[in-house]
Amino acid sequence: MKIWAPLLAVLALVIIAWLGAGVFEWTSLFGIIIPYTAFAILVLGFIYRVIKWAQSPVPFRIPTTCGQQESLPWIKQDKIENPSKTWEVVGRMALEILFFRSLFRNTQTEKREDKLGFGSSKWLWLGSLVFHWSMLIIVLRHLRYFLYPVPAFVQGLEKLDGFLQVGVPVLYLTDVFVVLGITYLFLRRVVIPQVKYISLAADYFPLFLLLGIATSGILMRYGLKVDIASVKDFAMSLVTFKPQVIPEIGTIFYVHLFLVSSLVAYFPWSKLMHAGGIFMSPTRNLANNSRAVRHINPWNYEVKTHTYEEYEDEFREKMRKVGLPLERE
């Protein structure tokens, strides 16, 4: 159920797009209304979620310290893993966000009879990194459809991505890598029993959706070719807010577009928001300096305590007997 339901859901989305745009030719709906709506949901939803998180304060300074603290001048502080200044925190966050630092630490625990072993385990890190970076480059490459003239960095990126110069059109490495990445992330979810055990439908759904998006995109480029010039004209019409459907674009394009629309509309309400959340994680984005600089809790309130006076009142005789100084004799 956890796997089948999301798979069927994604297949349904494909069929909906195929029927809607291909058979019924509701191209305005699938080409204009849905993409605009989905994009609006993404932007507004993302902002909503971030604001929602931001509304909850960070009452305590709780970084997870992963290295030596700043203490005595002759003890070398690990400024990245245990930052005490803002720019060091920026360094730590950059490593997390760009290179998945914490995942890089990953180990695998093995039990052999009465002994435990901790082996290095970098596959999850590698698979995630390959997937996320491919995804980022692919999204940036897509800017060529939305910008005129195409910026030099996008062209450079395309060149780099296709440097193998295999086939016509040139094969983009990221197209291969993104599929490999998604496949790996899916396979480990079904092959590793413990990961399968913790997985929810919400973990499979985005994987299937992304796979659908990648497949339809690849099909468009290498197989069922679409008219790239028309796609560009259409994309430009969308970004300039003069939307105009171009009838010649193949149905596969609408499938791709609909799946992307589904993904971006789903994004803010799903676990995919880890993309925004990681920036706000209090165990990572705070300096470990709460002994040097007082951290303020906005909802800190007075509490009832057991005062020294009450304590002395209770134990005065006993204290006197053992010669402890007293406030009141």
């Binding site: 929602k52 998180w53 909850s56 960070v58 990953n106 929810l200 880890h274 959340g277 165990t283």
Partner: peptide
Amino acid sequence: SKYRSFRLFMDICVRCGA
């Protein structure tokens, strides 16, 4: 509403299993 950590940690886990 009091702890960003709580709200965030309820929302962003991807169950990668690390």
